[in-house]
Computed example of a mutant assay.
Amino acid sequence: MIHATALGITTILLLLPAVALLSGWAPLRLRDRTRQARTLGWAALWLYLAAALNAVPRLVGAPSTFGMACTGAGALCAVGAAACFLRASTMGSMR
Rank of each mutant, 00 (worst) to 15 (best):
A26D: 05
R31D: 09
A55K: 00
W42T: 15
L45G: 02
P57G: 05
A69S: 05
Q36L: 14
W46T: 04
P27S: 05
A51C: 13
L28V: 08
Q36A: 10
T39Y: 13
L53H: 03
G74K: 01
R31C: 14
W46V: 05
L53D: 01
P27V: 06
P57T: 08
M68L: 11
T71N: 00
D32P: 14
Y48G: 01
G61H: 11
P57N: 06
L45D: 12
A82F: 07
R38K: 06
T65Y: 08
L47D: 10
L49W: 04
V56S: 05
A43I: 06
A69I: 14
A44R: 08
T71V: 06
P63D: 05
F66Q: 05
P63N: 10
R33L: 11
C84M: 15
A52C: 13
A81Y: 00
G72A: 13
A83S: 12
A81Q: 01
L40R: 06
L49M: 08
A81V: 15
A51M: 15
A55P: 02
G61P: 03
N54C: 07
L30K: 00
A78H: 02
V79F: 03
L76G: 10
F66E: 10
V60H: 04
T71K: 00
A78V: 09
G74W: 00
T65S: 11
L49T: 08
V56T: 02
R31T: 07
L76S: 05
L47Q: 06
L59A: 07
F66G: 05
A73W: 00
A26L: 10
F66M: 06
L49P: 02
A52F: 02
A37C: 13
A75N: 07
R35K: 11
L76T: 07
D32T: 14
L28C: 14
R35M: 15
L28G: 10
G80L: 15
G61S: 07
R38G: 08
D32F: 14
A52P: 08
F66Y: 02
M68E: 10
P27T: 04
V56G: 05
L47S: 14
R33A: 11
A62H: 01
P27N: 09
F66H: 15
G80A: 11
F66I: 11
C70D: 06
A82N: 07
A50W: 00
A75V: 14
G67C: 06
A55T: 06
A37N: 06
L76P: 03
G61L: 12
L76F: 03
P63G: 09
P63L: 10
L30C: 12
G74V: 11
Y48V: 09
C77D: 08
A81H: 01
Q36H: 13
P27E: 10
A82R: 08
G74Y: 04
A62N: 04
A50Y: 00
A62D: 15
C77Y: 00
V56N: 01
P63V: 09
G72C: 13
L30V: 05
W42L: 08
G72V: 03
L40S: 11
A44I: 07
A62L: 11
C70V: 04
A26P: 08
A43D: 05
L40G: 10
A43N: 02
L45E: 02
T34V: 15
A83E: 12
M68D: 09
C84Q: 09
A51N: 04
R33K: 13
A78F: 04
L45T: 02
L28S: 12
V56E: 00
Y48D: 04
A51F: 10
A81N: 01
T34R: 06
G41W: 14
L40P: 15
A62P: 06
G74S: 12
